[in-house]
Simulated assay, not measured.
Amino acid sequence: MPAMLEHTNLTVSNPDATAAWMCDLFGWHIRWAGAAMAGGRTVHVGTDAHYLALYTPGAPGKATDDNYATIGGLNHIAVTTDDLDGMEDAIKAKGFVTGNHGDYEPGRRFYFHDADNIEYEVVQYD
């Protein structure tokens, strides 16, 4: 049996705020929230099967490098939707700027960055 991805842990500036927009846009729910290592806080947000652990340390550092050029860096997180245009409208309504639109086999996609400059790809498969 192949391994299944359960979660990914990201460091963000405000896990509650990030989880809130993810719940609104992606239809996810908060699975758990509480104190974390180094005086920080973590919020687990996603579905019953998969989630993102959104962590902030007690004293966060500042990102210094472009993740696409950093070994071990996070390039982007991708989500799928059945309504790409509707999802883009909702993302713009939250104040995010979308770009890098493209059609490719077998679907369409666009990208946006959140307040922490984490890149997200939104895909609709045909």
Rank of each mutant, 00 (worst) to 15 (best):
M1A: 14
A3V: 15
L5K: 06
E6D: 14
T8R: 04
T8G: 09
T8W: 14
L10C: 13
V12R: 09
S13E: 03
N14V: 02
P15Y: 10
P15H: 04
P15N: 12
D16T: 13
A17R: 06
A17P: 01
A17V: 08
T18I: 06
A19Q: 11
A20K: 04
A20N: 12
W21F: 15
W21D: 07
W21L: 13
M22E: 09
C23S: 07
L25T: 01
L25M: 03
L25N: 08
F26L: 15
F26A: 09
G27A: 10
H29V: 00
I30K: 11
W32S: 14
W32E: 09
A33Q: 15
A33S: 15
A33W: 01
G34I: 12
G39T: 01
G39F: 08
G40N: 04
G40Y: 02
V45F: 02
G46L: 05
G46A: 10
A49W: 11
H50M: 13
H50Y: 08
Y51T: 04
Y51N: 04
Y51P: 03
L52R: 02
L52Q: 02
L52E: 03
A53Y: 03
Y55D: 02
P57T: 11
G58V: 03
G58K: 07
P60Q: 07
G61F: 00
G61S: 10
D66S: 13
N67V: 11
Y68F: 14
Y68A: 13
T70C: 12
G72H: 11
G73F: 08
L74K: 12
N75R: 09
N75Q: 09
N75Y: 11
H76Y: 08
A78R: 00
A78L: 04
T80H: 06
D82R: 07
G86A: 09
M87P: 06
E88P: 02
A90P: 04
I91Y: 03
I91T: 05
I91R: 05
I91E: 02
K92V: 15
A93Q: 08
A93V: 00
G95Y: 02
G95D: 05
T98G: 10
T98L: 02
T98I: 04
H101Q: 06
H101L: 10
G102V: 00
G102H: 04
D103S: 13
E105T: 07
R108S: 05
R108A: 05
R108Y: 04
R109F: 10
R109H: 10
Y111S: 10
H113S: 10
D114G: 00
A115R: 08
A115L: 11
N117V: 06
N117R: 12
I118Q: 02
I118M: 09
E119M: 15
Y120K: 00
Y120T: 00
Y120F: 14
V122M: 05
V123R: 07
Q124G: 03
D126T: 08
